[in-house]
């Protein structure tokens, strides 16, 4: 009995050690980014490195905030990601609900079509997209960028929401029909409120993807006033001549922190939404 106990506690210890080691490994890059951004250049390149800086060096931050561009990139990115999320949610809710509640042969084809677009490389379509946008005068507009980002995220969010609607008991909706409600009322008054966790999850997902965009923002936007984050970083801090790691890690911190905050606020819903959506869908 005693042997079994100690065996179990050793196993437990091992188990926790692995867990902690893995989490530490996952977090270390972010920690390192943070630490680097608070070191003066001469410290940054020192080997052996200092893992806990003894003083906070704030010049990189001051410089980043001073030049003002960066704040604009952040703001643009935020606008683009938010509106993308909104448009995405409207379109994906309708589509997801349609596939779940009114399945026909055509919707089946469409939903497969939607998913298959995920399998084509983005780099393959930028030229065609640029030409299209030029023709309809949508180059260099946030609208254009938002539309294409919406298009790239819709397939997955539709799928997620479809799974979510599948999970909702149909009987509530049926009794509403019996009471004489129209299809639309049922959708907006009954199904939508119930699908709130699913909507939050899908919204968070599309926000992340839009926030992450590089290639579309690069190709479709050429005015500095409208630039988004990743392109802005690449434009200003990955120049021709140097990697200024102090500066790069600083802007990285700036680009990541707003997402951390958002994420902590909504993370709970993501798990909930996915539980019903992607998991069972």
């Amino acid at each position: 009995m005693a042997v079994g106990d100690s065996y179990r506690s050793v196993r437990h210890a091992l188990y926790y050690a692995t867990l902690v080691a893995f989490i530490a490994l996952m977090l270390f890059p972010l920690y390192w980014m943070l630490v680097t951004s608070f070191k003066p250049n001469i410290e940054i390149y020192r080997i052996p490195p200092r893992f806990f800086p003894d003083s906070l060096y704030l010049d990189h931050y001051a410089r980043t905030l001073e030049d003002g561009y960066f704040v604009r990139y952040l703001w643009n990115n935020f606008i683009v990601a938010s509106i993308t999320t909104l448009v995405n949610l409207i379109a994906a809710t309708l589509a997801g609900y349609s596939i779940s509640r009114y399945p026909t042969r055509i919707t089946a084809v469409i939903s497969f079509g939607l998913l298959s677009t995920q399998m084509f490389p983005v780099v393959g379509i930028v030229i065609a997209l640029y030409t299209l946008y030029l023709r309809v005068s949508m180059l260099n507009t946030h609208t254009g960028l938002i539309l294409v980002l919406t298009a790239t995220t819709i397939p997955f969010t539709t799928w997620m929401l479809k799974g979510f609607f599948d999970e909702l008991p149909k009987s509530i909706e049926d009794s509403a029909f019996v009471d004489g409600a129209s299809r639309l009322t049922v959708l907006t008054r009954i199904a939508l409120p119930l699908a709130k966790p699913g909507l939050l999850a899908a919204g968070l997902y599309s926000f992340m993807l839009a926030w992450n965009d590089f290639l579309f923002g690069l190709t479709l936007i050429s005015s500095d006033k409208l630039r988004t984050l990743s392109v802005g970083i690449s434009l200003r801090y990955l120049g021709e001549v140097s990697y200024d790691w102090g500066q790069v890690t600083t802007v990285a911190v700036f680009g990541t922190v707003p997402m951390f905050v958002l994420f902590f606020l909504f993370q709970r819903y993501l798990v909930e939404g996915l539980t019903a959506g992607a998991v069972k869908g």
């Binding site: 379109a91 596939i99 009114y102 399945p103 026909t104 397939p155 959708l187």
Partner: peptide, 13 residues
């Protein structure tokens, strides 16, 4: 109704 709902998403994509 189903087709009308799926229309916006299909058009954009």
């Amino acid at each position: 109704f189903g087709l009308a709902l799926i229309l916006p998403a299909s058009l954009i994509v």
